[in-house]
């Protein structure tokens, strides 16, 4: 009986996960246009990876995004944020300046607009998603190891 329940959960989560991921990316890259942004979109994207890891097992989940990839994305998101701020200094404005630093502002309301806000939201989304995934995997693996030791 357990296998049947597992089958339902696995097929459903496998079907739903891509849609959740697309929605997470949508929320991230439309952060300057619609409600949402880097934090909420990253949380949605990370939740889809956690869903797959929960409904299958840890190995299948780890195949989607490995430990090292998650760590690199985690640090890269924070680094990209800071580098975007430093680019503004290099362009002759304050740290994290947007319009005064001369980032391309585009047409207001279009997808590719708002200069640094678009870039920083993207990096923040990557960072939050990998944070959730790393947190989840580390806690679950710690549980597994202590379970084996007993």
């Amino acid at each position: 009986m357990g296998t049947l329940e597992n089958q339902i959960v696995r097929i459903t989560s496998r079907l739903v996960a891509p849609f959740i991921q697309v929605y997470g990316i949508y929320v991230i890259i439309h952060g300057h246009l619609s409600p949402g942004g880097g934090f909420s979109g990253g949380a949605i994207f990370g939740a889809s990876l956690v869903l797959v890891a929960l409904s299958f097992n840890l190995e299948v989940g780890a195949k989607q995004i490995s430990h090292d990839t998650a760590s690199i994305l985690e640090s890269g998101g924070a680094l990209g944020f800071v580098i975007t701020g430093l680019v503004a200094i290099a362009l002759g404005a304050n740290f994290l300046a947007n319009q005064s630093a001369g980032f391309p502002m585009g047409q207001t309301g279009q997808l590719f607009s708002a200069g640094a806000i678009f870039i920083i939201t993207f990096f923040l989304g990557i960072k939050v998603a990998s944070t959730i995934v790393t947190l989840f995997y580390n806690i679950i693996e710690g549980e597994d190891k202590s379970g084996d030791a007993h």
Binding site: G31, H32, L33, S34, P35, G36, G37, G38, N98, Q99, M105, G106, T108, G109, S113, A114, G115, A116, I117, I120, T121, L124
Partner: peptide, 12 residues
């Protein structure tokens, strides 16, 4: 800021 979402324009 060029952002329509005022929350984004404040926090970012």
């Amino acid at each position: 800021t060029g952002a329509v979402n005022i929350v984004s324009s404040v926090i970012i």
